[in-house]
Amino acid sequence: MKVRVATEQCSTCAGCHVSFVDLHEKLLDVVNAIDIVYCPILADFKEHPEADVGLIEGCVRTDHDRHVVEDMRKKCKSIIAWGTCACWGGICGANTVFKPQEIFDKVYLNNPSTVTNIIPDSPRIPKFENEALPIDQIIDVDFYMPGCPPHPYFIFEGLTSLIAGKLPDTTLRSVCAKCNRRMDKTDVSELKRNIEGIPDPEVCFLSQGYICLGSVSLDRCLAPCPNTGMPCIGCTGPTPRVIMNPYRDIRTEVAERMAKLTKIKEADIIKEIENFARTYYSYYMGAPVLRNKPTFLIKKWMREAEKEAATV
C-alpha cells in the first residue's frame, strides 16, 4: 500500500515545494511509493484528507495558518516541519521584532515606493496575528527538516527513509563539512564586510575576516554559497550544538572560532554581529527556543545600533 502524503503551505514562498519538484528523475522513485493526497500548489481541494505523513511549509502568521496546522495535525499521523519557516520561523519570523502596527505602517501607510494609504481590512482576509511562530508552537511536530529550501537530496533521503520505516541516514554536520575552503590560521586583524575586497576562493571566509555563519548552520543545502564565493547567511538554521545549549549562541560561536583563526578580537566580532543582528539572525529570530536564550537581546542591540548610526 502506498504511503499517503499531504503537503500544506502556511506563510511562506513555496520554495520547499519547488525543491521537492527538483528531485527530477528521483521524483519517480518517490512518487511510486507515495500517494500525494493533498497539495495546494498542484490541485485545489478545500478539505484536508486523512494522510500518513503531513509536510507543512511556512510559519504561522495569520489565523488561517493556525487553523490549517491544527487541522493537519488532526488528519495526519505524523507531521514534518518542512523548511526553515516551519522549523524556526524563517524570513516571515524576522518581523517578530516589530509590532503588527509598525509592519502595516511601513507596508501600507508610509511605504516610500507606493502611494497606498489604506490598510486592507475585510472579513475575507485572514486576521494577522501578533507574531510569526514556527509550527511547533501551535501543534506537536514529529520531525524537523530545516533548509531554505532543504536540498532535494535531504527531501529524498527523509521521505524514502520514513516510507521504509526508519530514520534517515543523514548527518547533523554544519555547512563547513561540505565547504571546500581550507581553514587556515592567518594574521588578518580587521573585519571585512561582504562588499569589501575579493576573497581568496581557496581559503575559509572566517580566516579572511569575513563573517560566515557556516560553522553554526546545519548542512541541509550541501554548501552552495561558500563554495561559489558567498559567505553562509545561515538560512538552514542552527546546528544541534546551538539549539541544545542555552549559553551558546550564533554570535559567540562564530566569534570564538574566528578569533582563534585570525588576529581579530572576539569582542569586535560579537559587536559586529550584534550591530547587524537583524541580518545575521533573520532566519531564526522567530523561534522561541533561540530567541528565549537569556543572552539574545536583539531589541537592545537594535537600539544601540540606531544610536551609533545617529552619532556617525
Partner: peptide, 9 residues
C-alpha cells in the same frame, strides 16, 4: 532544544 535536536532529519 534537546527534544528538537533529536527530531532533526
Amino acid at each position: 532544544g534537546m527534544k528538537i535536536a533529536s527530531r532533526l532529519i
